[in-house]
């Protein structure tokens, strides 16, 4: 009987541990997206056609020329992507070089999007079947990666860029350059 009771208290302890876990998880915001596991790894090799006539396409070789860059993953059909346009413009004004991959998009839609919300990008590759997005470990649009001059992925920002994220991204970019 003593052995039995000992194991019963173990059950009580287990239940309490589960409650503590619940409490901890309830009291903090839920992680909604899965992060890329490729941070610190070289960019996978790719070569994308231009997504719009106004800019050339994008290949992984373009991102290993010694210059750190922001790689923005966006789509014309994505609402938050339009919301982050002012922040991208601010980043560009403060000297960030930004390239982009347009996910599952048509050239005319990308052109109209750039027309409406501005074009801070030097290159835009078209990724009609999310191939590069999957290769990057990106889980949605918009996302912004910091790529250093050697083509190594340094940082991933998930979701649209808010005003407070702009200095963070600039800092990450500076670190990637040094």
């Amino acid at each position: 009987m003593i052995r039995l009771r000992w194991s019963l208290w173990l059950v009580v302890a287990l239940a309490l541990a589960i409650f503590v876990l619940f409490f901890v998880q309830l009291s903090r915001p839920k992680e909604e997206f899965v992060r890329s596991a490729l941070i610190g790894q070289p960019l996978p090799a790719f070569a994308l056609e231009p997504a719009a006539e106004s800019r050339p396409g994008l290949s992984s070789a373009d991102l290993a020329d010694g210059q750190p860059r922001l790689l923005n993953v966006f789509a014309s059909w994505c609402v938050p992507c339009a919301a982050e346009a002012p922040q991208l413009a601010a980043l560009e004004q403060q000297g960030a070089q930004i390239v982009a991959v347009a996910i599952r998009d048509r050239p005319e839609d990308v052109a109209a999007f750039l027309e409406a919300f501005g074009n801070p990008f030097t290159r835009i590759g078209a990724d009609p079947i999310s191939e590069v997005q999957l290769a990057l470990g990106s889980s949605g649009v918009p996302e912004t990666f910091v790529i250093d001059g050697q083509g190594i992925i340094r940082y991933q920002h998930i979701g649209d860029i808010a005003d407070r994220d702009v200095p963070v991204l600039l800092e990450q970019l500076r670190e990637a350059g040094g």
Binding site: L4, R5, L8, W9, V11, V12, A15, L16, F19, F22
Partner: peptide, 17 residues
């Protein structure tokens, strides 16, 4: 959950013997 399950389990552990 804590009150009912925890309470009942404790009661059970006390009384099961």
């Amino acid at each position: 959950l804590l009150i009912y399950i925890g309470g009942a389990l404790v009661l059970f552990a006390l009384r099961a013997g």
